[in-house]
Amino acid sequence: MNIFRFLGDMSHILSFVILLLKITQGKSAAGISLRTQELYMIVFCSRYLDLFWNFSSLYNSFLKVVFIACSSAIVYIIRFKSPQKDTWNPELDNFPIQYLIGPCAVAGLLINQDWTPFEMIWAFSIYLEAVAILPQLFLLQKQGEVENLTSHYVAALGAYRGLYLMNWVYRYFTEDDYLQRIVWFAGTVQTGLYIDFFYHYYQSKRGGLSRPVKLP
């Protein structure tokens, strides 16, 4: 464990806290993409199948359960719970996620760390996580302006994988024969998708004023 990875996990947890607060206290899922939340639920449920046999640390196992529980709760609330479910707009949040799931599934089958079913599913979840934010970014693009809490949510989510990139660099230079090419590639793509958002987020928060984030 190193500071980058720890801060990355804390940033990821923060993103869950912000989103859960927003939809439970704010009683609204406006501006939040259910599609992205569904993809994250698939990512965590598929990646953390090894919860039952890969016990690398209590920290890991605990957070795996937390991530599966939170992502599932978020999907449940936005899909089924009133009044949140009425604030979800299927016309706006209509990114064809089958075009994300399909290619990631094929990539997981072809490019993975071993030919076992779990390794293929694991690789699939890594690739899917890299593109899971797309429906959310498209929804924000359509709306032009980003609600304050939502902007902090997306920023925390982007920072989490960005900090993981630093963690991988750190581990590469401090551990011998440390290789994680699949997550390195996917993590780079994932963080790259946030670059544009980060630029607008920084511009809007720079003056210390909480001017709303505007996406062109």
Binding site: S56, N60, N112, Q113, Y164, D177, L179, Q180, I182
Partner: peptide, 10 residues
């Protein structure tokens, strides 16, 4: 395929 490091990360 690519026997990378064991999965010790989230």
């Amino acid at each position: 395929l690519m026997a990378d490091a064991p999965k010790d990360e989230l």
